[in-house]
Amino acid sequence: MLSAGKAPETVFGFDFGIKRIGVAMGNTMIGQASPLAVIAAVDNQTRFAEIAALIAKWGPTRFIVGLPLHPDGNEHEMTARCRRFANQLHGRFNIPVELVDERYSSAVLSAKRGEVIDDRAASVILQQYFDQNLTY
């Protein structure tokens, strides 16, 4: 459990996708997540360069990555891709990464057809992490 009484940490949340990656930001002092950016996942070099620019600007000390699972909890192809993305984040930036079950995060979002909501999905994932892990 994280304690809100400690020095506040800036935390990034990620909603990984093959075409786009949603990024959210929050801090442990207020425990509230906000959408930050949507990164087009053109290729690894571009994707991680954009993430590096966000890190340089905001200085997060922890990453949270949504982990998609089947409703029964079993893993599937995207689960493995998200785990690989989480490992790459940790390996490239040496920032701790935690995985959060994202099975029902998209259920709280209602999007119009064609609307990009990846940053809001990342915000829901990060908010779930705060709600489950912060103690006041």
Score class of each variant (00 low, 15 high):
Arg120Met: 08
Thr79Phe: 08
Ser105Arg: 00
Arg113Trp: 14
Gln88Arg: 11
Gly114Pro: 06
Asn27Arg: 04
Lys19Val: 12
Glu77Ser: 15
Ile117Pro: 03
Leu89His: 08
Met25Asn: 00
Arg103Pro: 02
Met78His: 09
Val124Leu: 04
Gly17Trp: 06
Arg47Ala: 07
Asn94Ala: 09
Glu50Trp: 08
Ser110Met: 15
Phe63Thr: 01
Thr28Phe: 00
Asn27Pro: 05
Thr10His: 11
Ala111Cys: 10
Leu109Cys: 06
Arg47Leu: 15
Glu50Ala: 14
Lys57Phe: 15
Val65Tyr: 02
Ala37Thr: 01
Val97Trp: 02
Cys82Lys: 05
Ala40Glu: 15
Val11Met: 07
Ala121Gly: 09
Lys6Ile: 10
Ala121Asn: 07
Leu36Glu: 08
Glu9Asn: 10
Gly114Ala: 05
Pro8Lys: 10
Ile51Arg: 07
Ser34Phe: 11
Ala24Ser: 05
Ala56Gln: 11
Ile18Ala: 14
Val124Arg: 05
Ala7Lys: 14
Ala52Glu: 13
Phe63Ser: 00
Lys6Ala: 14
Ser34Ile: 07
Pro71Ile: 05
Ile55Asn: 02
Lys57Trp: 15
Val108Phe: 05
Cys82Gln: 07
Gln127Pro: 01
Val23Phe: 05
Val108Ser: 07
Val108Asp: 06
Ala122Glu: 01
Ile51Trp: 07
Phe93Ile: 03
Phe93Met: 02
Pro8Ala: 10
Thr79Met: 03
Tyr104Glu: 11
Ser105Gly: 03
Gly17Gln: 07
Lys6Gly: 11
Ala52Gly: 12
Ile64Gln: 02
Arg47Gln: 10
Lys57Asn: 11
Glu9Lys: 13
Arg113Gln: 14
Gly13Cys: 03
Leu54Thr: 08
Asn94Pro: 00
Ser106Met: 09
Val42Gly: 03
Val108Pro: 01
Gln88Ser: 11
Gly5Trp: 13
Ile30Pro: 02
Phe85Tyr: 10
Arg113Ser: 15
Glu75Met: 14
Leu109Gly: 06
Asp118Glu: 02
Met78Arg: 10
Gly26Asp: 04
Leu109Tyr: 14
Met78Ser: 09
Met29Glu: 15
Phe16Pro: 11
His90Lys: 12
Ile125Pro: 06
Ala7Asp: 15
Leu54Val: 08
Arg20His: 07
Val42Glu: 13
Asp101Trp: 00
Arg62Cys: 02
Ala56Asp: 13
Arg120Ala: 05
Lys112Asn: 11
Ser106Ala: 12
Leu36Trp: 07
Val124Tyr: 03
Phe14Gly: 00
Leu109His: 11
Val116Asn: 14
Ile21Asp: 04
Met29Pro: 06
Arg92Phe: 02
Thr10Glu: 07
Arg62Pro: 00
Ala33Val: 00
Arg84Asp: 12
Ala7Asn: 15
Arg84Cys: 03
Met25Thr: 05
Lys57Thr: 14
Ile51Gly: 09
Gly22Met: 01
Ile51Val: 12
Ile125Gly: 04
Gly114Gln: 08
Phe48Met: 03
Ala53Trp: 08
Arg113Gly: 11
Ile95Arg: 06
Ser3Asn: 11
Ile51Leu: 14
His90Asn: 12
Asp43Met: 10
His90Pro: 03
